[in-house]
Each structure stands twice: as C-alpha cells, then as structure tokens.
C-alpha cells in the first residue's frame, strides 16, 4: 500500500515537472533562442550585422577612403517594420568591430544633430581659441544609411514574414553610392517557438 502511494506521488511529481521549463542562460544569438514569426528576433539582428560586416570586409570599400582609417558618419537607419527594436543594436555591433579593429573611425561630432553634442562643442571651442593652427575638423569619407523593411503573408493559419536589412555607404567626396548590401530573413509558422 505504501509502495503504491510512493509510486503514485512520484508519477504526479514527474507529470507536474514535465510541463515547465526552468529559466536558464543561453548564448546570445544562439539557435536555442525563441523564434518569432511576426517579429525581428535578436538572432536576426546579429545575423544581419554579421552579413553587413562580412560584405564590408570582402569588398574592401573602407580601404579606398582618403583617410586611414576611413572616417564614417552613421546616418539615419529607418525601422520600417511592425517589430519594435532599436536599430542601434545593429549599428553598434558594426561600429564595435570596425572601430576596434582600426578599419574605420566613427565621427560623432558632425552635422546639425551630432551624436555627441558636448564633444562637438568642445571641438568648436578649441578650433575657435586656437584659430587656424588647430587640428582640422573631422572630414568624413563615408556616411552609412539604411532601412529595415518587412513583407508579411498568410495562408490559412500559416504566417510568413521576410525581414530585409539594407545598408548603403555613400562616398561623401563624390556623392555616389560606394557600397550597398541587403540581408534577408524569412520565417514561416503559425506560432512562436523555441529554437533548437
């Protein structure tokens, strides 16, 4: 009688624990992560930034700049999808690699809406105080702009979404497009799922 009760309680415990998954750490961007049909996932952003960086390295466009390393302005990158995320997740990863490896220097003090207003003020003041003998103001070679778009379709209960990341590098001396790249991601299913 006691044995039967113990077995029964173990069975109940096993059934209860089978339905829940304990929280755990996974590698960021790992295929184990959650895959959302109707949203841009973090692994999609990592894949996009990787594809962009590979293309930049492959073409060697940054090596064609007048200045070494190439001076780069990060322009507007529009998120034209229904998925809410910060495009900085894409650009900061790219900047990290380009700047830290010495392939490019990002100008954060350029234009009417600079990324770092205080640094721009300090630079202007130095320029004014030292006059013509001062170091020249940043003279960027390229500007980076882009757009992220989506195309969504459904067939019955099945949903499909294609997210396209596109970036363009414009040569600021010629005004011409120096490099462009698109990275697509298509997801299909009827509900979000945990990866593998």
């Amino acid at each position: 009688m006691r044995i039967t009760a113990t077995i029964a309680s173990f069975a109940v415990l096993a059934l209860a624990s089978a339905g829940c998954e304990r929280a755990r750490y996974v590698e960021t961007g790992s295929p184990e992560g959650i895959i959302s049909v109707g949203d841009v996932d973090f692994q999609d952003i990592l894949k996009a930034s990787s594809g962009m960086l590979e293309s930049l390295a492959e073409t060697g466009v940054l090596k064609t700049a007048k200045q070494k390393p190439a001076q780069l302005i990060i322009g507007e990158i529009v998120n034209d999808t229904s998925s809410r995320f910060d495009v900085g997740e894409l650009t900061y990863r790219m900047r990290e690699q380009l700047v830290n490896s010495g392939q490019a220097a990002v100008v954060t003090t350029f234009g009417t809406s600079p990324e770092d207003k205080q640094a721009q003020e300090v630079l202007r003041r130095e320029k004014f105080l030292k006059g013509e003998t001062s170091e020249p103001l940043p003279d960027p070679d390229f500007s980076l702009t882009g757009k992220i778009t989506q195309v969504k379709r459904t067939a019955g209960n099945t949903k499909q979404a294609t997210y396209t990341f596109r970036l363009t590098l414009t040569n600021l001396r010629s005004g011409l497009e120096a490099w462009t790249k698109t990275v697509d991601m298509t997801k299909l299913g009827n509900k979000n799922a945990v990866g593998f």
């Binding site: 790992s30 692994q43 990787s50 990290e96």
Partner: peptide, 9 residues
C-alpha cells in the same frame, strides 16, 4: 573576437 562569428540557421 568578432561580431561576424554568430550562429546562423
């Protein structure tokens, strides 16, 4: 160390 070394499916 690289931002290009990511898992791709």
């Amino acid at each position: 160390a690289s931002q290009t070394s990511v898992w791709k499916s």
